[in-house]
Design a protein around this nucleic acid. Structure first.
Lengths: 251, 251
DNA sequence: TGAATAGTGTCTCTGAGACAATATGAG
DNA sequence: CTCATATTGTCTCAGAGACACTATTCA
């Protein structure tokens, strides 16, 4: 430990006690109409047997986002084009002293939106990895402060759907408006009006662009064949697609 | 350096090469009708003589936000109630390898909104610290990647005014609607319609609450005395106060 | 044939913004 | 007195949401 004076005046990082920096990833996907996230079962203490976010130490030569993408690739066995289609962004950093009982660890958490992916365990190391429905989180014991990170990530994801076109990242490159609506309904946890949603999505510039094609068959329970769309080139939605307001506590 | 296998399988932070973690603060305030930010002139290499954000190493026993608040206090000489009124939130983390030429440094950047404060230099250490108008940034040489951090912070600040009541944090505890409008105009860099702004602010639940009092005198150039308001208890503005859209590139 | 779905039309209400009007107080 | 400012009123238009309707396709 350096003394206070030196500490404040020189700012020399080489004289500073070491802190470990990790990246963690809250990877979300939609399977069977439910929002899932990727969790790893820990094989060693601390929190042995608990569930944790995929993550690990940042390597000396990679930036934070690269590290997060690498961790995601390692745990999902994903690579190439499929990995590139996954949206990844920084979420926030978590560094409370004591969040890891072994030493000071600051984690840079990331948020990922992925299209439906194969089950993760195959091809990775011995860790048990699963896609868990977020509704099943309450029954799992989570390691570290990962419960809080997941809460923050879910709120960020809900919010991101409002003002960005990232909902498309949960889907295949071509999708129908109904499939897109299902993403919103799943992430927001409430049904949306099909007609109004359709008109809204079409009317926002750059959200989606038509391919000219339609689905081969109608819906499983009937209905016309739906037109197919691709993601447009907008980075932000103007105007935004706001969540229905949760009940106002009328006085 | 640990070998790859151990690296991936044990995740033992004690075996990992050290990374330094710092907190930096983009502290914004409004002086003389212009947006200013706090900068420190570096007295040592690297980037000696360049301007940098206030910041420093996270101490072993403090969490990230506490560290940021401490750094801000040290550089501004602020404490107690005045420090408590400063809004502080995490912005993002910056950890590209090579951003600090000495070693790997990951910085957790924070964003602060402060009411007009006294000049910083007094009472702090020998560093030269100033409130610089953001319009004067182009002419300054900034250390590290602090230029990018500041860009991100300014965009976040502009965005935060849209959907939170944090504009009030730039003002004294009691303020007029015109003063609040001046904050928005300064941060967004464009004039707003006085009448519409007034009605909007009053109509958003929990944004401001009247004190019943009015200013002692009218404006410097005449006009009636304005009513005084306090910040309300809303954390978010519903509906939001959106920035005027920047020119649509009409086809 | 019956039911579900895709897509469109219409109506209403809210809120944003342009513009106007009135009242107050500094210089 | 003159002008700037605070505050409120009015009008219009865009957009959100409720509801309705038609066409299409699966079972």
């Amino acid at each position: 430990m350096v003394d206070e004076q030196d500490f404040l005046s020189t700012y020399d990082p080489r004289a500073y006690p070491s802190v470990a920096v990790t990246v963690d990833v809250v990877a979300l996907t939609i399977r069977d109409g439910a929002l899932h996230l990727l969790l790893i079962r820990r094989g060693q203490p601390p929190f042995e047997g608990h569930w944790a976010l995929p993550g690990g130490f940042v390597r000396p030569d990679e930036d934070l986002t690269t590290g997060a993408r690498r961790e995601l690739a390692e745990e999902t066995g994903l690579g190439g084009e499929r990995l590139r289609r996954v949206h990844l962004e920084q979420l926030a950093s978590y560094g409370d002293p004591g969040r890891d009982p072994r030493m000071r660890v600051v984690s840079i958490a990331h948020l990922a939106f992925a299209p439906d992916l194969p089950d993760p365990a195959a091809g990775t190391d011995a860790d048990e990895a699963i896609w868990l429905p977020v509704t099943a989180l309450a029954s799992r014991q989570l390691a570290f402060d990962h419960g809080r990170i997941i809460d923050d990530a879910l709120e960020r994801a809900r919010s991101k759907l409002e003002y960005t076109p990232l909902a498309t990242r949960f889907l295949a490159p071509e999708f129908t408006i109904s499939e897109l609506r299902a993403v919103y309904e799943t992430v927001w946890g409430q049904p949306l009006h099909a007609g109004n949603f359709h008109r809204k999505v079409i009317s926002v510039p750059g959200f989606v662009e038509g391919t000219g094609a339609s689905t081969e068959r109608g819906g499983a329970r009937g209905g016309p064949r739906a037109r197919l769309y691709r993601a447009g080139d907008a980075r932000l939605l103007h105007p935004a697609l706001l969540r229905p307001a949760p009940e106002e506590p009328t006085p």
